[in-house]
């Protein structure tokens, strides 16, 4: 499981990403949701390691923070990190979805300085937050608009060719879908029908690239070194089985 080019299953995404999140000391409930978001990313044909390794690295190196606060505003509310660090997308994603699921009709939710916006998008997708859109300008001046137009249908409008999963550091604005937003000049528009993408993945598996090793390394932190004593606490210890 440590090879650079690998095809894995969606079940392995759940297994390894949950524990990778736990490996950087995210609460287990948050790590579980992080893994579900990564399944959604994988089901839509993306390499889940691309954005998620960065998010885990940020927590591990204390470039991001799992602490989050919410402040009500005139139009809705704002999530932000109490420190100067990035707001970790692991905690931002679950908090945004929780807020949406509370059923409060916010005109606008702002997520300040989140490290990997696509993880917030993935959580929204995985939780079927239909009828909403999110847009942001990231720290490298790439502009994105994601619209969840119907159940299982979403589209990405981006200002250039940089893959959405690499977009980093942004203030996201989430609101009900509106036709008022104009597309950036030379915008690229891509529409996804999740069921079609997922069917392809179920037939072919999830291709993960070089970031996989980093995910596996965080996962490995949940493993306990094997010793003579611990070997004896495994089932079947001491047996040679001929019968």
């Amino acid at each position: 499981m440590t090879k650079e080019q690998l095809t894995i299953s969606l079940n392995e995404v759940i297994f390894f990403f949950t524990r990778a999140g736990f490996g950087v000391k995210a609460p287990i409930g948050v790590a579980e949701d992080f893994a579900r978001s990564n399944v959604w990313i994988a089901e839509n044909g993306f390499d889940p390691g691309l954005c998620s390794l960065g998010a885990l690295d940020n927590i591990d190196s204390q470039a991001s923070d799992l602490a989050i606060l919410f402040k009500k505003t005139e139009n809705g509310g704002r999530f932000y990190c109490p420190s100067d660090l990035y707001l970790s997308s692991l905690i931002a994603s679950v908090s945004v979805v929780d807020r949406i699921n509370l059923g409060i009709k916010d005109n606008e939710l702002v997520v300040k300085n989140v490290d990997f916006p696509v993880l917030v998008i993935a959580a929204m997708g995985a939780n079927k937050c239909n009828g909403l859109q999110a847009f942001w300008l990231d720290e490298s001046n790439h502009e994105y608009l994601v619209r969840f137009t119907a159940e299982g249908v979403w589209e990405v409008v981006s200002s250039d060719s940089q893959p959405i999963e690499l977009s980093k550091g942004a203030n996201m604005i989430i609101q009900p879908i509106s036709s008022e937003i104009t597309h950036p000049y030379n915008a690229s528009i891509k529409k996804y029908i999740a069921a079609n993408e997922k069917e392809k993945i179920l037939q072919s598996g999830v291709k993960v690239g070089e970031n996989w090793q980093g995910i596996y390394d965080y996962f490995s932190r949940c493993l306990v070194k094997s010793t003579a004593e611990s070997r004896a606490s495994g089932a079947g210890a001491g047996m040679v089985d001929t019968d």
């Binding site: 493993l223 306990v224 070194k225 094997s226 010793t227 004593e229 611990s230 070997r231 495994g234």
Partner: peptide, 19 residues
């Protein structure tokens, strides 16, 4: 816990084992 040895699930004693 999971052991690093082939991810074998194990059931350890908190007082006697690390991990």
């Amino acid at each position: 816990y999971y052991s690093e040895e082939k991810l074998e699930p194990r059931f350890g004693s908190r007082a006697d084992e690390d991990g």
